[in-house]
């Protein structure tokens, strides 16, 4: 799924500067606990989260996350936004809650990129 499709489905806004329309996302995970994300997200996924601070971006760098979607209309501070721009990680904000946003993308055919605990 292209980033642009994702934005359209979620009625969202791209907050970062880069033209990421050609970035293709194969799967996603929704979580607020960064340790959960680090433990179980597959590479090249999108992360849907209600957490909105620089740690989310750092987690994305470390875990090879290709896009971040902030739910419930949360706006990141300037520091977080700058870090995302520097690291070329697209940030999207949507008014939907975590459950609904995940549901919309899942129904549109996006796979879960969350590994099950062993």
């Amino acid at each position: 799924m292209k980033i642009t499709e994702m934005i359209e489905l979620l009625n969202g806004t791209l907050l970062t500067e880069q033209s990421s329309s050609s970035v293709v996302i194969k799967g996603a995970m929704g979580a607020d606990l960064m340790s959960d994300v680090l433990a179980s997200i597959k590479p090249e996924a999108a992360l849907l989260t209600g957490l909105c601070n620089p740690q989310v971006i750092r987690t994305a760098i470390i875990a090879d996350i290709h896009a971040i979607i902030f739910v419930r209309g949360k706006q990141p501070d300037i520091e977080t936004l700058e870090l995302a721009n520097d690291e070329n990680i697209p940030l999207i904000v949507t008014a939907y809650g975590l459950f609904e946003a995940c549901g919309i993308l899942y129904r549109a055919g996006l796979k879960s990129y969350e590994m099950q605990p062993h």
């Binding site: 607020d32 606990l33 340790s35 959960d36 994300v37 680090l38 601070n53 989310v56």
Partner: peptide
């Protein structure tokens, strides 16, 4: 902050 859930050391070990 999204941390402090008692998973850090477990994650590292993994």
């Amino acid at each position: 902050m999204g941390f402090g859930a008692g998973m850090g050391l477990v994650n590292i070990k993994r």
